[in-house]
Each structure stands twice: as structure tokens, then as C-alpha cells.
């Protein structure tokens, strides 16, 4: 408010009291986040852990889950159907696609719920709220690790030779993780302000699944031209292509692809973070 400060505000200023519950400047916000980084890491680890803790096999499910998914795809596409669709190592192509797409879609889903779904934490503790979507996506990354182990066992079994590009897998996954964090920050704010956005997210994700080349090669089906160019340069498709490029010899790993992947990650993270921070003092109002 632009009116003259009230007597109480003057008293607060006189004794050097700090105002509570206002959005801190970006620099201080980042500093506090860095100071509380252990909280985000610990929260992410705990969430990923708690996910599998509710049954007898417990943490065995962390590994069993991706193994079973891989077996389902092997059975359907390797044994029952024979649909290579212009791809030599279709099983490798498909499993990488499915696992990595699931990482992105799960990041967006849990990230969008990070504010609305953690009201208990928000209404009892004061900490930079951006840590919540960040921790949600980090939890998905932790969940992805056993799936990556399964990939590293499965891909050679499909006849794929080892290559030095395998060493780039963590970098590719890392870029995808940064991108997912950026999107999660945007969605977390949108859902906290307009709950109805949450209802739309599954439709967007399903549409993304069909246009990102999870089950088929975009080049092969859409061909060339503007439509294909747009489809293959949108971020979700870029990361699928990038991870496939590191593991599968038939998918070329070009510098342009790396540039697109890094660009999307950086732009999404910066915009998403600023967008989220702008409403910092409003989270918690329900």
C-alpha cells in the first residue's frame, strides 16, 4: 500500500523487526533455497523410498517395477507382434522411449501437485516453496535410477554394441531432469491458482505421448516438412531422441540435438523458476 506507514510499522522499523510472509528478493530466495537444499534432497529421497514401502517386498519393487514393464514390452513387441516400423532395434527403441517418457510425464504430474498436495507441510513450516516441486521431480529422478539400470542390462541383450556414447547417458538424463523441474515449477503454480488445470494435465500428457515418438519413429511416420520439424524439436521428443542417441547406435547423436536439449532445459528452468517465485507469498492460501 502506498499510504503513510502505520504507527506499528514505524515501531517495527525502529526496533529492526523483519516483515514476515512477504516474497523475498530473488537473490535472497536463491540463497535460502541453497541453504535448505538438504531438505529438498532428503524429502525427495524419502518420497521415492516411501513409494515402495507399503508392501512386503518393499524396496525390491524399485527394481522389480521397471523389470516387469520391460518384460511386458518384450513379450508384446518382441514375441507376439512383429512391428519394427522402420526401426532396427525396435525393443531397445521402445523401452528407452517408454521409460524416459514416463520420467517426463511423472515429473509433470507429481510436480503439478507439489503445492496443492503438500498443504500440511506448507501451513506448518516456513521454507522456500520452490523446494517442493524441485523435490517432487528429484524423487522421480531417484525412482528412475533402477529403471536406468534395467535399461543398461536390457539394451545389450537386444544386440546393441557398447559405445563411448553410453557415458553421455547421465548428461542426457540430467538435461531432461532440468527440463522436467522447469515444467513442474510452472504447473505447480498454475494448479495452486487454478485447480482446474490439474484436470487438463492428463490430456496434455497423453497428447504428448502420441506426438513425441514414444512408440514410433517420427522421421519414419511423419516424414519431413514443417509438421515433422515441429514434432521432433519439441522438448519431450528431443529428450527421447537424445537418450536413444546415447544408447542405440542407429540413432544419430548430433551437436544440434544437444543444443536443443540444453536450450530447452535452461529456458524452461529459468522461466519456470521466475514464474513460480512471483507468487511465492500466495502459496498456502488454498
Amino acid at each position: 500500500m502506498s499510504t503513510a506507514p502505520s504507527p506499528l510499522a514505524a515501531l517495527a522499523a525502529e526496533h529492526g523487526l523483519q516483515r514476515v510472509g512477504v516474497r523475498p528478493p530473488l537473490r535472497r530466495y536463491l540463497a535460502t533455497m541453497w541453504q535448505r537444499r538438504h531438505f529438498a534432497v532428503s524429502l525427495a529421497g524419502s518420497k521415492a523410498y516411501a513409494r515402495n514401502q507399503g508392501n512386503y517386498l518393499g524396496q525390491v519393487w524399485a527394481l522389480l517395477n521397471p523389470v516387469l514393464w520391460a518384460l511386458v514390452y518384450l513379450l508384446v513387441f518382441g514375441v507376439l507382434l512383429d512391428t519394427s516400423r522402420g526401426v532396427e532395434n525396435f525393443i531397445g527403441f521402445l523401452v528407452v522411449g517408454v521409460f524416459m517418457f514416463h520420467f517426463s510425464s511423472a515429473s509433470i504430474t507429481t510436480g503439478s501437485n507439489a503445492i496443492v498436495g503438500n498443504q500440511g507441510l506448507i501451513t506448518s513450516l516456513q521454507f522456500p516453496r520452490a523446494l517442493l516441486p524441485i523435490a517432487s521431480v528429484l524423487a522421480e529422478l531417484v525412482t528412475l535410477v533402477p529403471a536406468l539400470v534395467v535399461l543398461l542390462v536390457l539394451v545389450p541383450l537386444t544386440g546393441e554394441p557398447f559405445a563411448w556414447t553410453w557415458l553421455l547417458l547421465p548428461l542426457a538424463v540430467g538435461l531432461q531432469w532440468v527440463f522436467g523441474t522447469g515444467v513442474a515449477l510452472v504447473c505447480a503454480r498454475l494448479v495452486s491458482q487454478w485447480r482446474d488445470v490439474k484436470q487438463l494435465i492428463p490430456f496434455v500428457l497423453r497428447a504428448l505421448m502420441y506426438v513425441s515418438g514414444v512408440f514410433f519413429s517420427i522421421d519414419h511416420y511423419v516424414g519431413s516438412g514443417t509438421a515433422a520439424a515441429v514434432l521432433s524439436h519439441q522438448p519431450v521428443a528431443v529428450y527421447l531422441e537424445l537418450v536413444r542417441g546415447t544408447l542405440l547406435s542407429e540413432v544419430p547423436l548430433t551437436p544440434a540435438l544437444w543444443a536443443w536439449a540444453a536450450g530447452w532445459a535452461l529456458v524452461t528452468l529459468v522461466l519456470g523458476f521466475v514464474f513460480f517465485w512471483h507468487a511465492e507469498e500466495r502459496y498456502g492460501r488454498g
Binding site: M1, L8, A9, A12, H15, G16, L17, Q18, R19, V20, G21, I122, T123, S124, L125, Q126, E281, R282, Y283, G284, R285
Partner: peptide, 12 residues
């Protein structure tokens, strides 16, 4: 932890 509509809270 809950934003104020108007007014302010100051703490030491």
C-alpha cells in the same frame, strides 16, 4: 505460512 490479505506481521 498463510499469506495475509492486508496488514503486516513483523518479527524479530
Amino acid at each position: 505460512v498463510l499469506p495475509t490479505e492486508s496488514g503486516a506481521v513483523y518479527a524479530d
